[in-house]
């Protein structure tokens, strides 16, 4: 994506090239008239400098024909622009009948994305190449705007009402996703990426049964849901460190202990309040309904891979026993 000095972002959707064509036509018009005016001004300024001798036989004060030309020529040019853009715009705002619908929820300051197959993502949208996609978008709080420069596509995301945006990606790769409507303190952090995949790869991805091991997807989920904001190994973590937790015995607040096996981890992810680890508060949100079983499996797979911390300063961390 970062390949130096460029004049337009990558063209990765069906309408991108046509928008650029219109844009460069307008750039041409702009350059032409700007240069024309600059040249005329400097020519007149030099030729008719007050100290210079020049033919100054009086021209008329106004001249209907020139005024008319000055009105009609710009009018004709802007009408070309209007007609051209209207065609692209109307085409862009229509949804192809075979489009898949993906739900998007904007929220200060993240994008939550829900695929029809049940897959969920945060700040990342995976789409297959060549497949028309319709985004059905709504905001949880203020106005946001879903903007993919590479697709030349943007649509505000409103609270209380759905807005829609359609596109067909044409080029596999990763592209920027921006929030373009100012939405509060961390507006500029409401960024993400669009991952355009070959249809086969996408199909594997969406089914979650990719060739890659589940812990890879689990790691992604772990980061997407910002689990490591609280579950980290540094001192002062708000939630129990997870490194090497699998298989250990965990002391709970009510004095009992439990073995950290798959079912314990699953329950603690989906309904954290069920078992509170001694020394911690019930601060973790409920992920029941947010995460599918697939996601949970991947997360657990990832948690299993986390290395055990070398030294645990926390006295209550029973899991330091091998």
């Amino acid at each position: 994506m970062n390949d130096g000095f460029r004049l337009h972002p990558e063209q990765a959707s069906e309408i991108a090239a046509s928008v650029d064509a219109l844009y460069f036509f307008q750039v041409g018009v702009t350059v032409f008239f700007t240069v024309l005016i600059f040249v005329l001004i400097w020519t007149f300024a030099l030729k008719y400098g007050r100290a210079r001798k020049a033919d100054r036989i009086l021209p008329p004060h106004e001249f209907w024909a020139t005024e008319l030309i000055w009105a009609i020529v710009p009018f004709a040019i802007v009408m070309i622009m209007f007609g051209w853009s209207a065609v692209i715009f109307v085409r862009g705002s229509q949804t192809p009948p075979n489009a898949i619908t993906i739900d998007v929820i904007g929220k200060q300051w993240m994008w939550r994305i829900y695929h029809p197959e049940g897959k969920r993502e945060i700040n990342t949208l995976h789409v297959p190449v060549g497949q028309p996609v319709r985004l059905r978008m709504i905001s949880d709080d203020v106005i946001h705007s879903f903007y993919i420069p590479a697709f030349r596509a943007k649509m505000d995301v409103l609270p209380g009402r759905h807005t829609f945006m359609s596109f067909t990606a044409t080029k596999p790769g990763e592209y920027h996703l921006f929030c373009a409507e100012y939405c509060g303190t961390q507006h500029s952090f409401m960024r993400g990426r669009i991952v355009v995949m070959e249809p086969g790869v996408f199909a594997d991805w969406i089914r979650g049964s990719t060739d890659e091991p589940p812990e890879v997807a689990g790691k992604q989920l772990f980061e997407q849901f910002r689990c490591n904001n609280c579950h980290h190994n540094n001192p002062g973590a708000r939630c129990p460190p997870l490194g090497g937790i699998y298989g250990t015995t965990v002391a709970l607040q009510d004095g009992t202990t439990v073995t950290a096996d798959e079912s314990y981890l699953r329950e603690s992810i989906l309904n954290p309040a069920a078992h509170i680890v001694a020394g911690y508060k019930n601060e973790m949100p409920l992920y029941l309904g947010q995460l599918g079983e697939e996601d949970v499996l991947q997360l657990i797979a990832y948690i299993k891979t986390l290395p055990s911390p070398d030294a645990t300063p926390r006295s209550e961390a029973e899991n330091s026993k091998p």
């Binding site: 739900d103 939550r112 829900y114 969920r120 709504i138 759905h162 309904g289």
Partner: peptide, 18 residues
Amino acid sequence: EIETSPVTRAAPEAFEAL
């Protein structure tokens, strides 16, 4: 069109206002 999309089931709190 408010369909009962996966979102509606998955993130109901987001849809309270709606």
